[in-house]
Design a protein around this nucleic acid. Structure first.
Lengths: 240, 240
DNA sequence: CAATTTTATTTTACAAATCAAAATATAACA
DNA sequence: TGTTATATTTTGATTTGTAAAATAAAATTG
């Protein structure tokens, strides 16, 4: 069974990747972050091949740091590699999406109940600030900013939960659907509803009404599922 | 601040690591699994340095696959690396333990409720088999077997939940405390209670009494926390 | 003799060149 | 046209070399 024959991306490879060298970090880290960003922003598309030599030339480094960065991406689930075939940007199926969101739902519950216990006044200030940013971004229609402000809002909550490992895991889960989420926010999102939900979450946290916040959070996530599902369906139908 | 001066392990490095070459896998994968097993079994102790050249000589490979394997361990949280200082086996603090278990608790809840919905008769058979194995191992006092049977029992449940990503994450969380758990099972565990709890879980799943199973599972985990906490305290006091 | 400075050694980080093996693309042929 | 043979590309792994940082050892000085 030539099961390797199918599903091998052969798409164009983005020409413009640049390293951000200002930080003093091991090259592999810089490469890792560069590639990850490119994947999350969609510059490197799902299925696109990650060829060592090509990337090395493009980024002006040797194959060594490229290879190490790919191992890291692989472990994060952003790339998958087939022996002797190399790596490609991970695709996401609807099932993958559902699995990820099932987990996020559980972890959001944890985050919310831990956060309602541990949240400080400083955190509330940050939440309010993130909300303002979000509303501003919506007003200006800046998709990138909208996504980032939403990100910031939720990160405050995860941080307030006081469990760094939780933040890391959720961050990783988010990353796996980031590219789709961007599309979703751009085309399908009901911003007004999102704003309302953020307000409810904030307010519920203030009242320490954990169950209520859990509920809102769950809905909030549910809306994303639908949006992202649409995007994935669309992408899939483009491939066929 | 010479903050790098402290906490650098300078322990002996195990002499006997062997590669298991029978599987046809990229060398980096074989190395990765070899090192991971060594860490989980405690052959490589927390804080022990992972020196490329040394490992390369020991395993009879070049530095390249060693480096790539270290990147993978790093991403799994089993090793930490400081630039220009190299990698060492990750240590775990009590706080780390609590964080991990807080997450596992949440994911166990998810696993249990998903599993009670999706579990099949075949899964039940496997659960029963794992229970038998566990009881046998207890009867014979084989610690390694006990741990493995317990592992198997819980893995059936995670698998029954039908969410592979959940399994992966939980697996990873478990790994981070595996070395301590082994010690705990050896010295502190109340086997009879564990057996009872397994029975209750199985029975609860049969009755599809999700809330009940969640409760037992929670207790089950709680007991582990205490045991592992003891081990960590002991290890810590040995370092000071 | 202790504390500091200098020197040497070790180790990581990265590059580059090389080779085998597998996968992919191309050309030749029936 | 479809299959087979050939060439090319790409990964996997090794080896060698070099620079820079960290660590250990030796020399120096107060």
């Amino acid at each position: 069974m030539g099961k390797y024959k199918m599903n091998i991306g052969r798409k164009k490879m983005t020409d413009d990747l640049r390293l951000n060298m200002d930080a003093y970090l091991p090259l592999r880290e810089v490469v890792f972050h560069t590639l990850r960003d490119a994947i999350l922003k969609g510059e490197l598309e799902p299925g696109e091949r990650l060829m060592e030599l090509h990337l090395a030339n493009q980024l002006g480094v040797s194959r060594t740091p490229i290879r190490e960065a790919i191992r890291m991406l692989e472990q994060e689930g952003l790339a998958i590699t087939v022996p002797r075939r190399g790596a490609q940007v991970a695709r996401m199926t609807e099932k993958d999406l559902e699995d990820v969101l099932e987990i996020r739902d559980a972890l959001d519950e944890l985050a919310v109940s831990a956060a309602s216990r541990r949240i400080t006044e400083k955190d509330f200030k940050e939440l309010e600030e993130a909300m303002r940013q979000f509303e501003n971004a919506v007003a200006q229609g800046e998709v990138r900013q909208i996504v980032e402000a939403d990100e910031a809002f939720h990160n405050v909550i995860y941080r307030a939960a006081g469990n760094p490992k939780l933040s890391t895991i959720v961050q990783n889960l988010k990353e796996q659907m980031y590219r789709y989420r961007y599309e979703y926010v751009k085309d399908n999102a009901d911003y007004e509803m999102l704003i309302k939900e953020h307000k409810s979450i904030l307010e519920g946290l203030r009242r320490k009404d954990t169950e209520y916040v859990k509920g809102v959070m769950h809905e909030h996530l549910e809306h994303q599922v639908e949006g992202v599902r649409t995007v994935i369906r669309r992408q899939k139908s483009m491939v066929d």
